[in-house]
């Protein structure tokens, strides 16, 4: 057992991790971050996606020990109800989820995509989401939501630029 320290959604947390424990199990079982979902535990579904130090990863393929000192973002940390993230707004408005099990991971993959490429085309969106399986929606509304979030964010930054001027 090793005591590790890491930031989750901006808050420092600590917990005990086994040497072989995955970051996913550590987050869920030790820190109760149950918004990170386990769909396969093998890197096949993307439900466990988190953003670690700016990069989206499958937390089931990462060891907890590797996250020592890391900054982790989960779906819960993207926004608040009063100040939602554009992706959260877009997912809600477009109805880009059904059961919601894939959604936290899907949103984080979309965020990682938009962080790198704020105006992805359709092909790029699809590629960006291709590691996340959704069995419910058929992906169409997810794709629309990501496109709409990308527009929303660029409008918001345009607004900001206008205000700055």
């Amino acid at each position: 057992m090793k005591h590790i320290r890491l930031q989750i959604n901006g808050v420092w947390r600590t917990g005990w991790a086994n040497p072989g424990q995955t970051l996913l199990d550590f987050l869920r079982e030790e820190l109760n971050c149950t918004e990170v979902k386990k769909g396969c535990g093998k890197g096949d579904c993307g439900a466990c996606t988190v953003i670690m130090n700016g990069i989206s990863i499958d937390s089931c393929l990462t060891l907890a020990l590797q996250a020592e000192g890391a900054e982790i973002i989960t779906a819960k940390g993207l926004g608040t109800k009063d100040n939602p993230h554009p992706l959260q707004e877009a997912f809600i408005e477009k109805g880009a989820f059904q059961c919601g099990f894939c959604t936290p991971g899907m949103i984080l993959s979309a965020k990682a995509l938009l962080d790198k490429n704020p105006k992805p085309n359709r092909e790029e969106i699809r590629r960006g989401l291709s590691g996340n399986i959704c069995r419910c929606t058929g992906y169409r509304k997810i794709e629309e939501a990501v496109a709409s979030a990308s527009e929303r964010s660029s409008n918001q930054s345009d607004d900001r630029e206008l205000k700055d001027q």
């Binding site: 979902k37 779906a75 939602p84 809600i92 919601g100 936290p104």
Partner: peptide
């Protein structure tokens, strides 16, 4: 076109499934 009633809980991952 009304949003789902659990929408916020689902986009944040807070909607509890059994394993949660």
């Amino acid at each position: 076109r009304i949003p789902e009633i659990y929408a916020w809980a689902k986009v944040t991952g807070e909607a509890p499934f059994t394993d949660d």
